[in-house]
């Protein structure tokens, strides 16, 4: 795992990462975790609540900083970075999808998606046209001007997925993306995420839903902040066959 040389397709690499919280008696939420995620991979991160999934996801997305170990996203070691640089790594290489969608209620769907490019310094016109394309990609091309309140939960989450994709990130991190959705909408969002991975983006899905986890190629089980198991198996042969012929992800170094 200790990468003397990083393979071109490695998007995310964690090496001996630990993160503790608390004062006098710190709790180790993530304990010496090492893993690699490659372009086009879709990974389920599972575990009981309090197992450290969300903390690990935050470390993977450079939202939080590890106490020990190194996190490398698209070739950039974020461990010693300043806030400004770490923020830039998030803006360019990482897309987030959250359980609560986090759509701004006063903005239309396309404006919400365009927010995904706001902190990259892209001009407004380009942001908007790329946001419209991203919405097309998630099947909401006809809903550009709709406010979140005018969309169903599943549609809102697809808008959020579009927002995570608009910057063409190397890595999409989804934290319980189907947690607030009914099973039909949830399944549609998961299909969408699988297609994102199919297009060459690395996707990590945090879930406590066993069924969802079972449906993904690779499952990493966390317990007390440690990796209990890390299994890979082809679930969907037809889908897996498509991965190889997709273009290289943009933005990877």
């Amino acid at each position: 795992m200790n990468g003397e040389s990083i393979e071109a397709e490695t998007v995310l690499e964690l090496a001996g990462v630990s993160r503790s919280f608390g004062g006098a008696v710190p709790v180790r939420a993530v304990d010496n975790v090492s893993l690699t995620v490659r372009a086009g991979e879709i990974v389920a991160l599972v575990g009981s609540s309090g197992s450290g999934k969300s903390t690990l996801l935050a470390l993977m997305g450079a939202l939080d900083v590890a106490d020990h170990g190194a996190v490398r996203i698209a070739g950039h070691d974020v461990s010693g970075m300043t806030d400004a640089h770490r923020s830039a790594v998030r803006a360019r290489f990482v897309g987030f999808v959250f359980q609560q969608f986090f759509l701004l209620p006063t903005l239309s769907a396309v404006e919400n998606v365009a927010l995904g490019l706001l902190y990259t310094g892209t001009d407004a016109r380009t942001r908007r046209s790329r946001a419209a394309l991203a919405l097309e990609r998630v099947g909401l091309g006809a809903r550009l001007a709709h406010r979140p309140s005018q969309l169903s939960g599943g549609e809102q989450q697809r808008v959020a997925v579009a927002r995570s994709l608009v910057g063409e990130p190397s890595l999409v991190l989804a934290d319980e993306p189907t947690g607030a959705l009914d099973s039909v909408s949830g399944a549609r969002v998961m299909r969408l995420l699988r297609s994102v991975a199919g297009a060459g983006t690395a996707v990590v899905v945090v879930t406590h839903d066993r069924e969802i986890a079972e449906a993904l190629d690779r499952r990493i089980v966390l317990s007390d902040g440690r990796i209990l198991s890390d299994e890979t198996r082809r679930v969907d042969a037809a889908h897996a066959a498509g991965v190889g012929c997709l273009p290289e992800p943009e933005g990877s170094v």
Binding site: N2, A15, G80, R92
Partner: peptide, 28 residues
Amino acid sequence: MGELRAPTGGCVAPSRLRHLDAWRTALS
């Protein structure tokens, strides 16, 4: 512990917010 590259990530420019966008964001 991984022996990764120098922990500066120097090739990533800091994230930026255009002035006009900053005002737009405030207004929104």
